[in-house]
Design a protein around this nucleic acid. Sequence first.
RNA 1: AUCGCAAACCACUCCAUCGCGGUUUUGGCAACUGCCAAAAAUGAGGAAAGUCUGGACAACGCAGAGCAGCCGCACCACCUAACGGGUGGGUAUUUUGCCUCGAAAGGGCAGGGUAACAGAGAGGGUCACAGAAAAAAACCGCCUUUCUAAUGAGAGGUAAGGGUGAAAAUGGGCGGUAAGAGCGCACGGCGACUGCGUGUAAACGGGUUGCGGGUAAACCUUGCGGGUUGAAAUGCCAUGUACAUCCCGAAUUAGGCGUAGCAAUAUAGCCUAAAACGAGUCGGCUCGACUCGCGGGAGGGGUAGGCAGAUAGAGUUUUGGAGUGAUCCACGACGUAGAUAAAUGAUGGAGACUAUUCCUGUUGGAAUGGGACAAAAUCCGGCUUAUCGGUUUGCGAUUUUU
RNA 2: GGCUUCGUAGUUCAAUGGAUAGAAUGAAAGUUUCCGGAGCUUUAGAUAUAGGUUCGAUUCCUAUCGAGGCUA
Length: 127
Amino acid sequence: MALEQAARLKSRKIIAALFKGAQSYSCYPLRLVWAKSVIPANIAVVQCGFSVPKKTFKRAVDRNLIRRRVSEAYRLHQTQLHNQFKIKHLMPEPEAGGYAFMILYTAKEILPYTEIEKGIRKMIRKF
RNA sequence: AUCGCAAACCACUCCAUCGCGGUUUUGGCAACUGCCAAAAAUGAGGAAAGUCUGGACAACGCAGAGCAGCCGCACCACCUAACGGGUGGGUAUUUUGCCUCGAAAGGGCAGGGUAACAGAGAGGGUCACAGAAAAAAACCGCCUUUCUAAUGAGAGGUAAGGGUGAAAAUGGGCGGUAAGAGCGCACGGCGACUGCGUGUAAACGGGUUGCGGGUAAACCUUGCGGGUUGAAAUGCCAUGUACAUCCCGAAUUAGGCGUAGCAAUAUAGCCUAAAACGAGUCGGCUCGACUCGCGGGAGGGGUAGGCAGAUAGAGUUUUGGAGUGAUCCACGACGUAGAUAAAUGAUGGAGACUAUUCCUGUUGGAAUGGGACAAAAUCCGGCUUAUCGGUUUGCGAUUUUU
RNA sequence: GGCUUCGUAGUUCAAUGGAUAGAAUGAAAGUUUCCGGAGCUUUAGAUAUAGGUUCGAUUCCUAUCGAGGCUA
């Protein structure tokens, strides 16, 4: 994954907590599941994980390709997301802990990078 | 030159920007030997896949004996750490070519493909429909004979011919006979045996002898091999913790302590020893071995970080030698991923290859496309399956030129 | 990562190696009824795919494809 270590969502516990009590919305071809204050304090503003279902994409090659494209699109638009937080006064306090994101890929076929980038932009504007 | 088949090899290349994994070095913060920054070189395959196999490695008691069962293998020799893999050979079958071999049927020679190539003469089972009969067969038929005027009927012999079927009792020929029959003969076909010849052997040739189907990719028999479980194995550190609680069952004898008693003695408790008993383990059963003194159940609780295993190995390879070959030997050279919510992506440009269309028309140019199958997860040897295209070598066919 | 089971009509299940692959339910058409339902009659519809063994394969074997289950 082409993200720095601190911005990745890696802990099994946090992911379990995220799916237990989380809000979500979707904008094709992606779906965002998010929750506030599950990340331990003073690590990162946002930790993000990506998931491509094995059910729709059987081959590991396809899943890797899609995950890399989504990850790349997210990485390039990270600063926009932070600006969005400042504008809407949603910037979390460092002591309270950051946001946890999980981006799911819901489309049934492999889309090119430009389509995925469009989806990411829409998603950030909607937040 | 084109086409086809087989084998081996390659798996588009380069540059720029942003970004990722581990490694090394330097610097900073710092003392949880960690985090951050910079630089350097480096970073997925021929199948990494399927998980079909053989191992390495690890644990289980350093793996006990017999029986049964289960799984696998099955012409021979060799290679290999080992194999169900590979190489060479044999046999069967199929195909291509050739033959002044033959009238034909067919035969011989050479090359290629295929084979789950032990056993149906150990044993039962099974072979639908049709057919007399599907394995010691007799419907029609053929022959002999008895009765009868004759058609025909009865008794016996026979298996050449007919029809059925996927398959009909070793093939067609000659002799032979009442008619027939491997009943006899020569030529085949299929087995078995063989102090014979060649070969390491399978086998081939010779000799002797036999001939009542198929099915083992259905049960089975014979020979050989297999202890079980897999890196979520396993070891260490950290964290947490429990010889806890409740219920049920079993608790022999001797001695000591304790308790009751003035004492003999008694026994609700504890300790020690002994055999017996019980329980557990060694995949099933029997024997045998070992461990424990308690066993079984209920109901809850905690952790799920890190390090090692884990990347120098049956390693890759030049040259030379041995061998028909797989492969082996000698000397030299090389350093080649190591992640763990899991590292290779995105964008732009250039070049090469290639398909289609257009222009020019011996060459070439332009536009629009195309690049497959597929991602390491402990590591090696194979097998199988997927794969756009390219290169080389060998063989065969066709055409042209010499 | 490893181990393991299965695949039959639209759905749920049958079928000693023997040929028209069966049953229920659903679908379609007809009949009955004033209309619908129920009933009755009929029709179509399947062995995951590709090879092999066999005279003959849903069944036996091999390889692919797909769907589950177990495993600290």
